[in-house]
């Protein structure tokens, strides 16, 4: 092998501005994921997510073309309408897909870097820890938003243009904001939780087990506490219930019986979710450093 075939030529170009360098990390990881061994599984998950949205879209189409239902003598008035509950259900229906996607895509995001000792490689470049974490978060947040907010908004717009009309948009003008807000909160929380678990270990599989353990564990804890104190107040510990309660609040469904049955408000649920996300970020900040300081 030759020592070198040519002399060293300095690069004379101008570097791109710093603000979007975190996107390089996101793009690189996404391209690796979608060209690597797990590509088929990811595509399968995304297709299944798409199928759920397709069902909702088909329902919107059928409701806009009621003569189809009448042909089959299906009583239209007994079918659920297309309202805030419909769009909340569309997002909630993606919960399992979001969880699987998070586990598959996120488990090794920081754990692999820790295993390969590659964090100093990133941070020796003009990147801050925040930008590094933002880049990793983007790997999870973008696909999560891609299977929650984007298709739900699309269905909303298609219904508005297809059959809902002016009356629909005047009644439900808040819904697009609610769809985006809930989806962003889901993406932020899932991303932060997965990255936190990934930063604690050096094997992605263990990070996945940690997340599943935390998910099951905190729900069990909520159930046990509810049982011991014979109260439903401890439901607030369960993030699953918190997200549902938050959804009801954001989608303006405070009046429905389900919302009334929760012993805590939507605002309190948002507080718990934000606190849990902040805790994950605090741990992440502590874990991700360019050097491991031995005390």
């Amino acid at each position: 092998m030759p020592v070198y075939d040519q002399h060293y030529h300095p690069w004379a170009g101008k570097p791109r501005p710093r603000w979007h360098r975190w996107l390089v990390i996101t793009r690189y990881h996404l391209s690796l994921l979608f060209t690597g061994k797990g590509r088929n599984i990811l595509i399968l998950i995304l297709v299944s997510a798409g199928f759920i949205h397709f069902c909702f879209l088909a329902y919107v189409y059928v409701m806009a073309n009621r003569q189809i239902l009448e042909q089959y003598a299906i009583p239209v008035e007994r079918l659920p309408g297309i309202n805030a509950r419909f769009f909340l259900t569309e997002i909630i229906a993606q919960t399992l897909t979001v969880a699987i996607l998070t586990l598959i895509m996120g488990a090794g995001l920081i754990a692999d870097d820790r295993r390969d000792n590659a964090i100093p490689l990133y941070l020796s470049k003009p990147l801050t820890v925040t930008e590094y974490l933002l880049g990793k978060l983007g790997v999870l947040a973008l696909p999560i938003l891609g299977i929650t907010a984007v298709p739900t908004l699309l269905v909303f717009v298609l219904h508005w243009l297809g059959g809902g009309g002016k009356e629909f948009i005047l009644t439900y003008w808040r819904l697009p904001f609610a769809i985006v807000a809930l989806s962003v909160l889901i993406a932020l929380f899932c991303g932060a939780l997965m990255l936190m678990a990934s930063s604690l270990v050096k094997k992605g599989a263990i990070a996945g087990v940690v997340v599943v353990g935390l998910f099951i564990g905190h729900n069990v804890l909520a159930g046990v506490l509810n049982g011991i104190f014979d109260s439903r107040k401890f439901m607030i510990i369960s993030l699953q219930f918190d997200f549902y309660r938050l959804g009801l609040w954001l989608f303006g469904l405070e009046h429905v019986q389900e919302a009334q049955e929760f012993p805590f408000s939507g605002l309190a649920a948002a507080g718990v979710i934000l606190a849990a996300t902040a805790l994950c970020w605090a741990i992440l900040w502590r874990q991700v450093r360019p050097v491991e300081v031995v005390k």
Binding site: G13, P15, V24, Y28, D116, N117, P120, L121, K125, P126
Partner: peptide, 29 residues
């Protein structure tokens, strides 16, 4: 760095280009 810090699953050219992008080089460059 002194220690091993490379991403073993990457091809050499991809790793170096990736580091270049982190410095702000456009992808093609």
């Amino acid at each position: 760095p002194e220690h091993d810090c490379l991403i073993p699953s990457l091809k050499a050219v991809r790793l170096v280009a990736y580091c270049g992008e982190l410095y702000g080089l456009p992808w093609a460059e």
